[in-house]
């Protein structure tokens, strides 16, 4: 039986088990090969598609590699000034409480220039979802040191490695905001393997579900790679991420149902 099945028998619309969500536009992603931004974009759009919420969602793009996120997501979007996305989201959600509102931000945007906006939106318990992609580097501007660059890690502005005595320590902003009473669900995930992609999608779905229930701020960090900034092939970058980023930024839920995970 199996032997008689031809390619034509299998490749039929009724047999599709996975295809790119229609909420991703046909525009070719501006990201480098292997960059986790593409996967994360798609997961957010898959969740909105599953929630049938295209007409009810407003997204906010940051400044950084994902500055053009609005080119790829087929929803209404706003482009914020660097770091200010949570302030925009605050106003949108308060003015239109029935919409899903999310920000999509990188580590420079969220944890350096936008630290104030992030922490205060979290502390006010705004009913928004923040998707935070942390690759430990400023990708778009050419690989400079980020607030999340690991100790000893090289970047174009710490070419001999981050010397914490001189340059300060990497900021675990996710752990920090998890301690604020306004946050309800805080998790750290990754998208480099199929299993991790599935977990991340569940986390994003959960974050949006909780937003609908007005539980407070939900926050999904995605630890990701920056092949160009780290100067590695995508596959090697993913391995480097597992070996170096994950020990410092361990994956898993940090706060669930408003309670810190012990």
């Amino acid at each position: 039986m199996a032997e008689t099945l031809t390619k034509q028998d299998i490749i039929k619309d009724e047999n599709i088990v996975y295809k790119k969500t229609k909420l991703m536009t046909d525009k070719v992603l501006s990201y480098c090969p292997g960059c986790g931004h593409g996967t994360t974009h798609r997961l957010v759009m898959e969740v909105i598609d599953e929630l049938d919420a295209q007409a009810n969602t407003i997204g906010i793009a940051p400044v950084g590699c994902s500055v053009l996120a609005y080119e790829f997501m087929d929803i209404d979007m706003q482009e914020a000034a660097h770091g200010r996305a949570p302030a925009l989201a605050t106003a949108i959600k308060r003015l239109m409480p029935d919409k899903f509102v999310f920000t999509y931000q990188g580590d420079g945007d969220l944890a350096a220039i936008g630290t104030g906006e992030t922490i205060h939106a979290a502390n006010r318990g705004e009913n928004i979802t923040i998707i935070f992609v942390n690759n430990g580097i400023y990708g778009m501007t050419g690989g400079q040191m980020a607030p999340t660059t690991l100790p000893g890690m090289k970047s174009s502005t710490c070419p001999y490695g981050r010397d914490v005595k001189m340059m300060g320590y990497p900021l675990k902003i996710t752990e920090l905001i998890a301690r604020l009473p306004g946050t309800y669900f805080v998790t750290r995930q990754a998208v480099h393997t199929p299993a991790n992609v599935r977990k991340t999608k569940k986390a994003i779905r959960k974050a949006f579900d909780l937003q609908k229930q007005n539980k407070g701020l939900t926050f999904v960090e995605v630890v990701s790679n920056c092949n160009s900034g780290w100067k590695m092939t995508p596959v090697k970058a993913n391995q480097w991420m597992v070996d170096n980023m994950f020990p410092f930024y361990p994956l898993g839920d940090i706060k669930v149902d408003g309670e810190l995970v012990k």
Binding site: M1, A2, L5, D9, I10, I11, K12, N15, I16, V17, Y18, K19, K20, T21, M24, V28, L29, Y31, P33, G34, C35, G36, H37, G38, T39, R42, V191, H192, T193, P194, V197, R198
Partner: peptide, 15 residues
């Protein structure tokens, strides 16, 4: 699902 650029469509049949 792991493809960052979403270039793969997957088909499956039970036999």
């Amino acid at each position: 699902i792991v493809c960052p650029d979403g270039v793969i469509t997957v088909y499956r049949v039970k036999i």
